[in-house]
Design a binder for these strands. Structure first.
Length: 557
RNA sequence: GGGGUCGUAGUUCAGAUUGGUUAGAACGCCUGCCUGUCACGCAGGAGGUCGCGAGUUCAACUCUCGUCGGCCCCGCCA
């Protein structure tokens, strides 16, 4: 709606966003998904203007005119023009909304979710949802161009309870039997490779019955892809190309590819996590050499002594630092120790420091040095601290820092049960040089795995899969998974399965990060709460006794 | 399953530490005035089971306990 429409008679549809009634003249901001337009109404010529209410859906007829210069508002994209109304039709009257529908919404999130269709009218929500559409469009463009074909796989599938908890769907026709909602298309996409489609993708919904978080929903969407005759490099190149395409199409930015890479082991040692946030430094430093000979009892006989140098961290109070100690204790660490540096060193182990060590650590005036000693547990602990310090002190640089993390171990040890579990998923191919440890020391076996991390968030996870039945069965055996649940895959691997691998970037998180939003719920049209409820739909809810009877279900109480 | 935090007009919050008169403000809503506003302005008005339940007390929005709900975190998320 710009100058080229001036003096044209037009009709417009939209919602009443604001009313400024000056008595002899009424201005209404008419909003649709593209913009807001000021319409000007003469209440003498158009009776009934007084009945207009916020959020009414209306149709207006009138002539576009250019505003006099003093009345132009650069704030609005249509700020140079306005519509002189000759007729108004109320298409949908609105009740008084339960909260004021405006960009800078005041209402709490639960109220917004209860009336999500109103919340979604707000400009930031419209932007987010349309942004999401653009990102998904760019993904499809790129994958289509690269000879991927989009194939749908079942939502109703079989329960594979070894992963996350399944959402179960009771069968009506078969008493006591259940389907499960797909946790991922993993099995099917591998079968599509066996079937010879070579390059597949899908905008896939994945459902997992685990507690939601700000970046986790019971159902989430991923762009799931799989390729035959590829190795890690091929998959990573495709994924990098896809992100570059998204950045170019949607943000108009050149994204620097290839992304840097880091071994899992280095990520843990330097950042205490497998998803390092590279928007700031503060790497974990090995200080064992500097402190081992000092005769300080808590450090004695500890396998590792590691430190963080927190730039400008001297501002933390003793109380704040003491609370860290409690947290360390809860984790079974011997405690943490800190030194502040002003004119002199101060703090619990100031005595152990000297100018030499400080210089090596680049520990400068105003900084805080945090040290802890112990087993592997200190790494995730320091990794968490590192992130918290960065948030408190605002250390993060703006921008997007992508990183590949690779060389993950295939297995983890569940400390409670002593059993091995798959660190990512059990379909990952072991690195050929590590296969020899499968029988002797499974924890030593690295997988052909690669995670894509951006600003400390896991955005995608992928691997080269097993296309050999014997190896796949062996892996099932190590984690004590029931291979009969996967018969369809194991059988298929015996009919000319191609080598294959893939990756699955999580769309909700990608949108959240690219849009700079704090919660995944802001980029999903109809999300669930962190208690896994739909407040608008009022779900989960009870069903009728007849429905239960049909499904052969009896509930407690 | 565990921890933290919040819950007071339609909405967002103040009031609570120190229990005591009629629980306030802003936005929204209603009425009136206003022809250049764009967060319009001005005048007036309506609107409250202080989440729910119990306890302490002469007296509870306020203190105690319990409970329900939202958000954040841990567990969990192949």
């Amino acid at each position: 709606m710009q100058k080229d429409k001036v003096d044209h008679e037009i009709e417009a549809f939209g919602w009443v966003d604001r009313i400024r009634n000056l008595g002899g003249l009424v201005f209404v901001d008419l909003r649709d998904r593209t913009a807001t337009l000021q319409i000007v109404i003469d209440p003498k010529a158009i009776p009934g203007v007084k009945e207009l209410g916020l959020q009414d859906c209306i149709q207006v007829f009138g002539k576009v005119r250019e505003r006099p210069d003093v009345q132009k508002t650069p704030k609005m994209t249509t700020g140079n023009v306005e519509l002189e109304v000759s007729k108004i039709e109320v298409l949908g009257k609105s009740k008084v909304p339960p909260f004021v529908v405006e960009s800078d919404v005041k209402a709490n999130e639960d109220l917004r979710l209860r009336y999500r269709y109103l919340d979604l009218r707000r400009e930031p929500m419209q932007q987010a949802i349309m942004f999401r559409h653009q990102v998904i469009t760019a993904m499809r463009e790129y994958l289509n161009k690269n000879d991927f074909i989009e194939i749908e796989t079942p939502i109703l599938t079989r329960s594979m309870p070894e992963g996350a908890r399944d959402y179960l769907v009771p069968s009506r026709l078969y008493k006591g039997k259940f389907y499960a909602l797909a946790q991922s298309p993993q099995m099917y996409k591998q079968l599509l490779m066996v079937a010879g489609f070579e390059r597949y993708y899908q905008i896939a919904r994945c459902m997992r019955d685990e507690d939601p978080r700000h970046d986790r929903q019971p159902e989430h969407t991923q762009v799931d892809m799989e390729m035959s005759f590829v190795d890690e490099e091929d998959v990573m190149t495709i994924a990098e190309g896809m992100f570059a395409h998204i950045f170019k199409q949607v943000l108009g930015q050149e994204l620097k590819i290839p992304f840097p890479r880091m071994r899992y082991k280095d990520a843990i040692e330097k950042y205490g996590t497998d998803k390092p946030d590279l928007c700031f430094g503060m790497e974990i430093i090995d200080v064992k050499a500097a402190f081992k000979g000092k005769g300080f009892p808590p450090f004695k006989d500890k396998p590792d002594i590691r430190a963080l140098v927190v730039k400008r961290g001297g501002s933390f109070s003793r109380k704040e630092l003491d609370s860290l100690k409690d947290r360390a204790k809860e984790l079974g660490l011997p405690g943490i120790f800190w030194v502040k540096r002003e004119e002199k060193f101060s703090g619990s182990i100031a005595k152990l420091l000297d100018e030499n060590i400080a210089r090596q650590l680049q520990f400068e005036k105003g900084d805080l040095l945090v040290i802890t000693a112990g087993s592997k547990k200190i790494f995730p602990f320091l990794g968490n601290l590192r992130n918290e310090f960065a948030s408190e002190l605002g250390l993060r640089e703006k921008g997007f820092k992508f990183l590949w993390v690779y060389d993950f171990p295939i297995f983890e040890l569940d400390e409670k049960t002593g059993a091995f579990t798959a660190s990512h998923h059990i379909f990952t191919q072991p690195k050929p040089e590590d296969i020899k440890y499968l029988d002797t020391d499974p924890l030593k076996v690295r997988g052909r795995l690669y995670d894509l991390v951006c600003n400390g968030n896991e955005l995608a996870s992928g691997s080269i899969r097993n296309h050999n039945r014997q190896i796949q069965e062996k892996l099932f055996g190590i984690v004590k998974m029931d291979p009969t649940k996967y018969t369809m895959l194991l059988d298929a691997l015996e009919y000319g399965a191609p080598p294959h691998g893939g990756i699955a970037p999580g769309i909700d998180r990608i949108i959240m990060i690219l849009a700079g939003l704090k919660s995944i719920r802001e980029v999903i049209a109809f999300p669930k709460t962190t208690t896994a409820q739909g407040l608008m739909e009022n779900i989960p809810d009870q069903v009728t006794p007849q429905q239960l009877k049909d499904l052969h279900i009896k509930t407690d109480e």
